[in-house]
Design a binder for these strands. Structure first.
Lengths: 194, 194
DNA sequence: CGACGAGTCTAGTCATTGACAAGTTTAGGG
DNA sequence: CCCTAAACTTGTCAATGACTAGACTCGTCG
């Protein structure tokens, strides 16, 4: 960082991505400017374009990274043998809160190149991981239609995470940690009884 | 439209809002430009600022309008005496699909002036309507904690709507109309049995 | 009836931005 | 050792958001 950069940065791609994550986390995707990111990385204003082509390209790369992180976090939970569907949801919520910038960009198709092959691949892979996770749950908890159960679980976790991040839930319930709150919410719907 | 405008537009505020809705529906909020909206309305590039102050101000106004539309749609469902919780969710999903621009902006705090009083008021009012709607349901369907049940229902509907709009659900299930699919999804979780 | 004042709109300007085009430097394989 | 491809720079252009100052117009009050 303090070292006077040679002509080549070394890992500009990562540096720009990290700077973007920082900006998005603080001010949202609208505040991202390629020129600003370049400044932060200490390179000229046109350098980032060489790695991402576009502003949309940069955000696409971020989304891809996000889908991969999510799949990893989820696969890890499955590997640990969590047999409870709620725990998978908790992982999802935690991902959204731990990686707000990625989460933000992932579900904002208007910000990236919708059909970049790496993006589509990452989305499909993650979708499969989610579905497999739900399928691995004891049948009693999910009915007989895995696709539908996946949609239910995903919708619940995704909606919760989104609304929480948007500050829409605070007014409905006394101060509580989001993960616990989600556990209760999911328990209400997926538990043995209503 | 064909009439040669006099100096005063008549209802520039509405014209700009409508143009914004059109643009956002087609290309997302990132594609909104005050100057473009001004052009579409046939006024000078600085005119819109007089009604909304800011770009963020414009989007804030849109969000407020969205919260009001949602509360109206929801209140209407309650007035019609829909006793089924799923139907309230269906209303929510339908709102998101019928008013994509509003829906988009409503839940994107980084795009508007988070604590504009009209916005906060609209959010609170809508939150109350949602909560009251859930509270009006037969107790068996929602457990004993209204706040938690509201969060559950809202999260499910919101997540479903968001994921559907983002095209994330298509891969999980055979082609189906979103409203029916949501009915099934909600039935899986809120129905008498799993 | 006429002036005036607030609200509405125009015209002009500035810094910033995304995208593009050309040129420069560097690293690493042949 | 060279030479090509990748990484980066410099320069430029149209578009944008925000701001300022001024012009028009309508309703109201004298």
């Amino acid at each position: 960082m303090a070292a006077p950069r040679s002509y080549h940065h070394g890992d500009l791609r990562r540096a720009v991505l990290d700077a973007a994550i920082e900006v998005i986390t603080a001010e949202g995707p609208g505040a991202v400017s390629l020129r600003d990111l370049a400044r932060r990385a200490g390179v000229s204003h046109a350098a980032p374009a060489h790695h991402f082509k576009d502003k949309a390209g940069l955000l696409t790369a971020l989304a891809v990274e996000g889908y991969e992180l999510l799949a990893a976090a989820f696969g890890q939970a499955l590997g640990a043998g969590s047999a409870r569907l709620e725990e998978l949801g908790v992982r999802y919520v935690r991902f959204a809160l731990d990686h707000p910038a990625h989460f933000e960009v992932m579900f904002r198709p208007d910000l990236h190149h919708r059909d970049a092959p790496e993006l589509v691949a990452a989305q499909e892979r993650t979708g499969r991981v989610l579905r497999d996770g739900v399928a691995a749950m004891p049948a009693a908890r999910r009915g007989d239609d895995t696709g539908l159960a996946t949609i239910a679980a995903w919708s619940l976790a995704h909606g919760f995470a989104t609304l929480w991040r948007g500050d829409n839930l605070r007014r409905l319930v006394a101060d509580r940690a989001p993960e616990d709150l989600f556990r209760n919410t999911a328990g209400l719907l997926f538990g043995e009884r209503g």
